[in-house]
Amino acid sequence: MVYEIFCRMVLELDSRSGPILPEQTHPLIFDGHNDVLLQLYRAGGLTASDQFVSGRTGAIDAQKSAQGGFGGGFFAVYVPSPVDLEFKFEEMAKPSYDLPLPDPIEWEDAFPVVMAQAAILFDLEQRGALTVCRTASDIRETLAANRIAAVFHIEGAEAIDADFHTLEVLYQAGLRSLGPVWSRSTIFGHGVPFRYPSDGNIGPGLTDYGLRLVKRCDELGIMLDLSHLNEAGFWDVARHSTKPLVATHSNAHGICPHSRNLTDKQLAAIRESDGMVGLNFAVAFLRDDGRMLADVPISQMLRHLDYLIEHLGEDRVGLGSDYDGAIVPEDLTSVASLPKLRRAMAQHGYGETLIAKLCHENWLRVLEKTWGQ
């Protein structure tokens, strides 16, 4: 309801003064990754939910979503490591870097943080700011009603116990997407450090627990996100999962040789599985030089899109912004800026059908295949 009201306000503003055209805010963008729940958690938890409704300084809220035609996406629940972000970003602005992996986080420390962020997600639903979707049909209906469609995603499985008790309960609550690791080890596998130049061929892959997790997620219909897995873990999932391979927020290693990006061989496997990659807006994964500097033109994002489309096909590429969790290009600092990206796509020569696929249709296609609904 809140989002619908803001959408009507945007259309009224357009009819009076014309700064936002209807074609600029459509097709709605359904996005592979954002970290707004983490930012609300840091800002006070449930007491910060009002900021999402009334407006906040970050990248995503209800007002900015209406202004930019942001239809929702994967709302990540993430347990932060005690990292000095200023030091991290300073290091990643250098021509080369190799940040050490953060220490693992124990289940008893991760679980309450996951519960707190999940509570924020469901509180936002109670306030009418978004709808938590459990099927692809739910997403289609929510987008058609001009409401924000949210997929409950966990980035890094520290809060999942070895017996999967928490996995079963979280699935019943609405969990439909899970990354076995963030860039630190879990009992399920190993991630990649923030390293440039590098690839993801770093260390061992999934553990026995991780292989069991793949099987159970396939059975339940929980999508596995490969974005932070190292190469060995990627290939373990490729061998053992019966579902499409999906990286919600990753880019092309052939353009930016960062450990977080996907090699041509990985892209070929994703295509073979009829999977999906969401373009990450984080500048260090976009720039040829891998540096965490925001002066990245939208044309560089289009280079990655062209590359991903060439290797995956038009049906297997979307967006995975990492909004509220990364430094993004100066022209796209929030979801209110997304009309610029649509215009750039059109000017680049992408037709209406392809733009609709990139904005949301490809995500719906792969979720229907993964979830079976």
Rank of each mutant, 00 (worst) to 15 (best):
D35V: 02
T47V: 08
I60D: 02
D61G: 13
V53C: 12
Q63T: 02
F52K: 05
Y41L: 02
D61M: 04
G55C: 14
L37G: 08
G58W: 14
Q67K: 06
F52H: 03
S54A: 13
L38M: 11
R56L: 01
A59V: 01
V53W: 07
G55I: 12
R42K: 15
L38Q: 07
S54N: 15
G58F: 08
Q39P: 07
G58K: 08
S65L: 04
L46D: 12
S54L: 14
R56A: 15
F52E: 00
S65Q: 03
Y41D: 13
G55R: 06
Q63F: 03
A62M: 11
A66N: 05
L37C: 06
G45N: 10
F52S: 04
L37S: 08
Q63G: 07
L46C: 09
A43V: 00
L38A: 08
Q63I: 11
S49E: 13
Y41M: 02
S54Q: 15
A43W: 01
A62R: 04
D61Q: 00
K64Y: 01
D50Y: 05
V36N: 05
R42N: 12
I60C: 05
A48E: 13
Q51D: 12
G45L: 03
G44D: 05
Q67L: 15
K64N: 12
L37Y: 01
S49R: 14
A59G: 09
A66Q: 05
S54W: 04
S54Y: 10
L37E: 01
R56V: 00
T47L: 05
R42F: 13
G58Y: 11
Y41A: 03
T47N: 14
Q39V: 01
L40Q: 09
S49T: 15
S49A: 15
G45K: 03
A62Q: 03
L37Q: 11
L46S: 08
A48V: 12
Q63W: 05
G58D: 09
I60M: 00
G55Q: 14
T57M: 06
Q67A: 13
R42A: 15
S54R: 15
G55F: 14
A66E: 06
A62H: 10
G45Q: 09
R42Y: 07
V36C: 06
A43G: 11
A62D: 10
L46E: 09
T47C: 00
Q51A: 14
L38I: 01
Y41N: 06
A43I: 09
A43Y: 04
T57G: 15
I60G: 08
R42W: 10
R56M: 06
